[in-house]
Every structure is written in C-alpha cells, then in structure tokens.
Design a binder for these strands. Sequence first.
DNA 1: TACACTAAAGCAACTTAGTTGCAATAATAC
DNA 2: GTATTATTGCAACTAAGTTGCTTTAGTGTA
Lengths: 126, 126
Amino acid sequence: MKKTRNTQKQDYVIDILTNAKHTMSVEAILKAMPIKVNKTTVYRILERFAEKGKVHFVTGEDGKAYYALCNDCNVKHEMHNHIHFQCKSCKKVTCLPYEIEVPELKDFEVQETQFLMIGICDMCIS
Amino acid sequence: MKKTRNTQKQDYVIDILTNAKHTMSVEAILKAMPIKVNKTTVYRILERFAEKGKVHFVTGEDGKAYYALCNDCNVKHEMHNHIHFQCKSCKKVTCLPYEIEVPELKDFEVQETQFLMIGICDMCIS
DNA sequence: TACACTAAAGCAACTTAGTTGCAATAATAC
DNA sequence: GTATTATTGCAACTAAGTTGCTTTAGTGTA
C-alpha cells in the first residue's frame, strides 16, 4: 500500500463530512472549508478517501457526485447497499437506513452499488 | 396536454433506442443518427419522451445520462424499479430484469428511482 | 391547395463538473 | 537538517448539458 501523509486539509474534509447532515458535493465542501483550498485538491482528497473506504459517493440525478462518510455501512458489507434520496428541488442527497437486497448477477462482476430514489423532500414540499 | 408533432428525427431516436442492446448516451444516439441532427434537438426529443414515459434514463457513475426505451417497465409500475448495470471499463449501461422492492419513505415523496450496480461486464473482464 | 399557427429543430454561446500535467510546497523518515 | 516524495496549487482543458433566439416544418382549417 502506498504511503500516505496526514494534512490539515484532509482533516478539514473529514470534519466537514462528519458534521454534515447530508451528502455533500465538492462545491459544497469547498464552501464549507475554513481556509482556501483548491478544488483539485478536494477532488483528490476525496478520491483517496474513497479508495480507502473512508468515504463513499453517489452520483445524483443531476450528474454530480455527492460524498458521505462511511460509518458502519461498508465495515460489514464491503459495499454501500443502502439507499440514497435526492430532492429534485433542493438537490440534497441523503443516506437512508435501508439496505437493498442485491441479486447475484451472472454476466457482471459487481464492485459497487448506487441506489437512488428521487423526489421531493419534506422541507421542500410545503 | 400540449400538442405534439411527428417528425422524422423523433422516429430515428425511437428506432435507434429500439435496436439498442444497451442504454445510450446522447452522444451515442447522435453518432447512430443516419442524418445530421443537432445535439440540442436530441436532448429535447429525449426530454419530451421521458415526460411521456416512452423513455427512461439512468445517471451513470460517470455523471452522464443513459437512455432506454420503456417497454413494460413502467406500464405496470409507474416507476422504473429495475436495476441497471454500468461497466467501469466500457461504460455501457444495461437494463437488468430485476425489480427492486422499494421501501415506503416517510419524509420523502418519491417520484423516480435509479438503481445502479457498477463493476465489470463479461465482455471487458477477459 | 394555400395559409396560419406554433411545435420542433438549429445554432452559437454559455455554464459547470471534473480532469490533466506540471511546478511548488510540506509531511515524514533518516 | 536534509532528502524523498505525497500532497497541494494553478492554469488550461474537456465534455455534458443548457439557454435564448431564430428558422424550419408539421398540422389543422378554409
């Protein structure tokens, strides 16, 4: 395994995702940063974390990637088979505590899953 | 309901999707067109078809939209709860004949679903 | 068949997420 | 303290998708 270093910016990303109520886009993470960080840096930090399984992401219906910390989700499963919900109005993506029972596929070697439900959230419905 | 017109270009899109083995990106549809068509046109044709329920799309892990004809998938269900598979190597997205049992969500009004499994397909594994 | 209405198509310019290659910076090991 | 190299920054780029406006061409009516 490649050597890694601890940096302040990586810590900030973890802090921000830890305190996040929803999954976050790179754009949102950048805005939440207490110091100025380049977007490429954030992309690469998240890429590294995703490889290590610290973070997972879903691609929203809008084509953007939304990131969240991995809590117990993949410790047990190696995969993130829980559902995400994206609100069409506010675009927020939320991790939901529902696991999907995934079928065995014959012609495909499955590495990840992304289950997304799309609609309107409570906050936006009123 | 708004009036619609039948045009050659719309027919071509339907033809192409009918003969497609996989879901198709707008780029792929454009390439498959027997005549020159503007990309904006294809986007708008697909948008109209999606509204009418003739077509559905999944957002791939790559953030691109992949379109497929709706066969019996939404006639019965109003939603497209089948699984899609995207190959990380060739990027192809395939509709799979597996329905997902979706949970009732309390805080969200669900309008659509996108279930994506990601990995390597048989063709690319060798 | 000719005409009016307007849906559909074309065009060009734009927006934005994400990427790339390379140079500068700074953790870590010695 | 110094060397090594992981990490960050920067600028330029790519590509998907959008927007506003003009032009073209289905379709209904006379």
